[in-house]
Design a protein around this nucleic acid. Structure first.
Lengths: 135, 135
DNA sequence: CTACATGCAAATTGTTTGCATAGTT
DNA sequence: AACTATGCAAACAATTTGCATGTAG
């Protein structure tokens, strides 16, 4: 996905296409899979921290970026493919792998029903060691 | 569970049983199901905030308390039954219900295996509206 | 008695907000 | 021109840390 695509998506939702937002988008595309707001600030000098935060919030709303809460309570962000998925976080190398499992989601929905809950969403993070680190 | 039990558990792991820790334990037992560090500070006047944080960390290590990350990124704590469970968080009244589903856990483990991950743990939170609020 | 725990306040870290100015459409 | 977005700095919130003092074992 290119910066143009993402930019277009912003406009589509009625948001202005500004230079700072472009800079943030490019920084995100150039960033490692998992990044922090700090990373983006560093990669997009001249863009204020507040704007980075504001832009990140926007991008989350359009599902271009997703928040990944780590085990220790800190937060990372990730460029997102948009569709619903879960994360496998490697505690050794820090890499994150996305995965989907419709059956798992179905089971979750079922559990919610059983409990009498009207489910709006859920978050699932798996913590462990990836294949490469687990030796 | 009583304050005595929990206190005993602290000692068992080689930690001292001090007055501030007792106070925090009692505040937790008296607190609503879901509470913040602030709640405990308020309920245990005279105990420093830092000590409350330090004690909470201890209690998490012994699994007497568990962290519940909310959808908006804020954190609540919950007195824990110790065993593995998940949370259903009601966005309307804020209540939290625990549930267990071994089959769900099995599925999660399977997904991790498929991805070549050695799973250490996971966190799953469901967000929605509880039966009482969903009308 | 000795090591561990506490309280306080200062230091961090992460994030939000007010407001005057600049930029898009 | 009208309205939105930005930058900066200050405001906030949550959590951690240094250090002198207190206290459980």
């Amino acid at each position: 996905m290119t910066a143009q695509d993402t930019a277009a998506r912003l406009e589509g939702v009625g948001h202005r296409l500004t230079a700072p937002r472009r800079a943030v988008l490019e920084a995100i595309l150039a960033a490692p899979a998992l990044f922090t707001v700090e990373d983006i600030c560093a990669a997009a000098p001249g863009v204020g921290r507040a704007t980075v935060f504001r832009t990140m919030k926007l991008l989350q709303e359009i599902d271009l970026v997703c928040r990944v809460p780590l085990e220790d309570g800190s937060v990372r962000y990730q460029f997102s493919q948009g569709d619903h998925h879960h994360h496998l976080v490697c505690s050794a190398c820090g890499s994150i792998k996305e995965f989907i499992d419709p059956e798992l989601d179905a089971r979750i929905l079922e559990d919610a029903l059983t409990a009498g809950f009207h489910l709006d969403g859920h978050s699932l993070e798996l913590y462990g060691r990836c294949a490469a680190c687990d030796r």
